[in-house]
Simulated scan of single mutants.
Amino acid sequence: MSAEYAVETINLWRIYKDKDREVVALRDVNIKVKKGELFGILGPNGAGKTTLIRILTTLLLPTKGDAFVHGYNVKTEDHKIRSIINLVSGGEYGGYGLLRVEENLWMFAQFYGISTSEAKRRIKELAEKIGFENKLKDFVRNLSLGERQKMNIIRGFLTDPLVIFLDEPTLGLDVPTAKTIRNFIKSWLKESSDRTVLLTTHYMLEAEELCDRIAIIDKGRIVAIGSVEELRKMARNYVSAMIEFYGTSPPAGIPGVKGMDLKEISPKHYKGKIVGEEENDVIEFLEAIIKSGGKLKYFELQKPSLEDVFISLVGRGLENEE
């Protein structure tokens, strides 16, 4: 453990008991997030992202291993951690519907001992930054999903935390609202070198746009960590292709095909991407389609991308759950 890191986990596990079986949510997770960094956890739904966030925000204890925030142990120094962090989750309702937005935010400020005058100043300032000042007098029950998430963003940043945990903060939002929130996150981080953001997402473009470094997680295990550029370099070892075919199911058992992100748009009609170690592996995949009676509608080789790294490591795309 080192106080130089904003967040550090060491051989972290979380195992749930489910009737007669054990479910491993996190498996030997090791990450080090530098102070001042915007660090992303990228993975599909159910990969363990939210479990990791819950442990780091002291809402859940690990089964074994250790986790630290600014050098404080989540198991024994949770009270010290809670005073320097905050959490915003995508899709959370939050607040009391009978109160107005500014009343809800003022109430949350009181929980942290912020004076009324300072709370009002911060609420006004944050609302202006995300274009929400005209909604402060509205009742929470009347807010749309995007408006409610803007309120949650203000609540999370209202305490000016040293570390903010953002768990899928743009989940389900329209493009303009998501863009506003992403721009705010970037500007907030630049205002002080003491601030750190740990972001979980299953949106590839969001991770690429925001994060200094990214950890790819699948089935509770970290499978890669690096900057966007470092992860992109891994993609140069693969060949990817966009493909559309019908009349048969996707071929299986081709060793050189590392993964696929195919959607069945109608019965036995598939469209998406495959990633292989070499061009010959992709050709073998095409030949297998034709041999099984399928028809090829579209095929195009593509330049390697961060998405290809993800598919090659986990065997499927971000939107494909097992």
Rank of each mutant, 00 (worst) to 15 (best):
L38D: 08
I85V: 09
L42Q: 09
R195C: 02
E128K: 14
E322N: 02
E244N: 05
S240G: 11
E279D: 12
W13Q: 06
D160G: 09
H202R: 05
A47L: 00
K219C: 00
Y16K: 07
A6R: 06
N280V: 03
S2R: 08
T63S: 15
F157W: 14
K135I: 06
K17Q: 15
R182T: 11
L306M: 09
E102M: 11
I81V: 11
N104D: 12
G71D: 13
L38T: 08
G226F: 03
M151N: 06
A288K: 10
T9G: 02
P62G: 13
L166C: 14
T50P: 09
E125A: 07
R195Q: 04
E4D: 13
G36N: 08
Y203C: 00
N73R: 06
G91E: 03
T177M: 14
G272I: 00
Y298V: 00
I85G: 01
D261L: 04
K268H: 06
G48V: 01
I164A: 15
I243Y: 04
W188P: 00
E133C: 05
S192G: 03
R14Q: 01
R82D: 05
I15L: 06
I290D: 07
S115K: 12
I154Q: 10
L166S: 13
K263A: 02
C211Q: 00
E208F: 05
